[in-house]
Write a protein that binds this DNA or RNA. Sequence first.
RNA 1: GCCGAAUUAGUUUAAUGGUAGAACAAAGCCCUCGUAACGCUUAGAUGUAAGUUCGAUUCUUACACUCGGCACCA
Length: 582
Amino acid sequence: MINIKENERLSTLNHSCAHLLAQAVKHLYPEAKFWVGPVISEGFYYDIDLGDKVISEEDIPLIEKEMKKISKDGKRIVRHEISKKEALEMFKDDPYKIDLINRMDENDTIISCYTQGDFTDLCRGPHVESVKELKYFKLLKFSGAYFKGDSNNKMLQRIYGICFETEEELNNYLQELEDAKMRDHRKLGKDLGIFVTNDLVGKGLPMYLPNGYIIWETLENYIKGKERKLGYLHVLTPPLGNVELYKTSGHWDHYKDNMFPKMEVEGEEFVLRPMNCPHHMMIYANSIHSYKDLPIRIGEIARDCRFEASGALKGIERVRTFCQNDAHIFVTPEQIESEFSEVVNLILEVYKELHITNYHFELSLRDKEDKVKYYPDDDMWNKAEDTLRKVLNDLNIDYVEKIGEAAFYGPKLDVQVKPAVGNEYTLSTCQLDFCLPMKFNLTYIDKDGEKKTPVVLHRAVFGSLDRFIAYYLEETKGALPLWLSPVQINIIPVNNEYHLEYAKLIKDKLSDYRVKLDDREEKLGYKMRESVMNKIPVTLILGQKEVDNQNVSYRLLGSEETITLSLDEFIKFIEDKIKNKD
RNA sequence: GCCGAAUUAGUUUAAUGGUAGAACAAAGCCCUCGUAACGCUUAGAUGUAAGUUCGAUUCUUACACUCGGCACCA
């Protein structure tokens, strides 16, 4: 998918197109007031105050038509530079522009404006020479958007669009959007029988169907196997806990709005847990630890419940109950670096093994000015942030630093991915935490016999299994690799009367795999089609030729070719594919 | 939660202020077959609750859920 922001020419084009949109809106709705109209990776948008008017479906073609008209008219786009004082005078009727001008740096004595025909907008530029160049654009979507992105503010009208240099590029882009819908995990999840939701069960509460659960279980076993080799100890803890537990951890104060409300039973108060840290802290606290025992790695595929805003729910990507591939690693301060490094290496290894390439790292740091959102201890923060940075640099990993995105208790490394439809989200995460062990008075006995407080690494490689399945379905377009596929091998006898017996024999010999024998009285072509539509990776066709030669013929998903092998060769081929997670 | 839009059989969808049409899937018959749909038959639907109306699936309102964004976030 193209990134408009990264292309200078397209970036200028889209920025100018945002002005064109604003001009058209102004023509149609003279009372319109404009906030900002930036370029984004998928084009541009403009935030507009239309008073009581709300943009509706029918308005979009009218605005597009007006844009085309202005473009055809072909006015030049002219830059002027004016003083701040002049700017304040020029936009005196527009409170949004006044707001922008006043927020500009005191040293910015010169402010630039761009005029095209009857429309002038405050803007740094650059822009294209003439509106004539803005020919191949499309308005894509519209919605409400809070002024300055703050939900306490008024809601403005936002219109999104995109502009290209040629019609072909525009059409290609629109086609890509259509294609993306086809690999949306919500569509694939339905088509392939992975998960469902049900109104009576409740929204945001997905249920995994047999096919989905095979994927789930396979991923669970895979990651737990990896963790075991690295010394993780797996536990099982309850999905709810006493409110006091969360008051002690601080989550009650900081996270209450994202939790389901507490329930009172026999004078005790409980909550569904939104995360597993406190439970794992209590497991650590269960026994005395020597510095020699650290790091202690407590892992769990753990169910959490979060009261997500209804508008945030999305398939199995964002839900109200999910299972984290969670672990808490208790270390001495000296072990932070090596252990963090080991977690990053585990993430890299898993991504490599699963052939995931489409992701980037973000290092989330605190905003030093924000003393409320972040635990106040400058020394701790500086040390923690430097350590994470050092590990990433040592491992030669590209990452983006995000100020003000850290957790309350410490900085974190996130792996960000982009779904087929919608905004990017976090898949894997590793967070450094100096606070929680203190709150629970966790200790270990150090060399000198003194009790010391351990540091905790919170980490999740798959993030949540739910979210990971959503991501992997979209990455593979539903054509899951053999090791994960709910049905691995589909056996189709050419003719039941003559070949079914042989097919059954082969099925028995492949009993280590998830094999389906399609013995329905249907034509071969019909069964073949279904095998492809169900995205079964390997289809075996067994007819007279195979019976006579005592071998098998198979076709791979996405291939037109049929290959014949002896059964032993075929099993070896399958084994290799599974081993390579291919 | 906020701003919009949508909700028709298991699924994808058509149409309408006056008996809701189709395709795939299902069931039955037929076909006995070499790599993406043989044919025929049957059964199956207007999210929920009010309102307007002689009559509502269609118009109005509320609720539920879904979708596109915003805000929030694994």
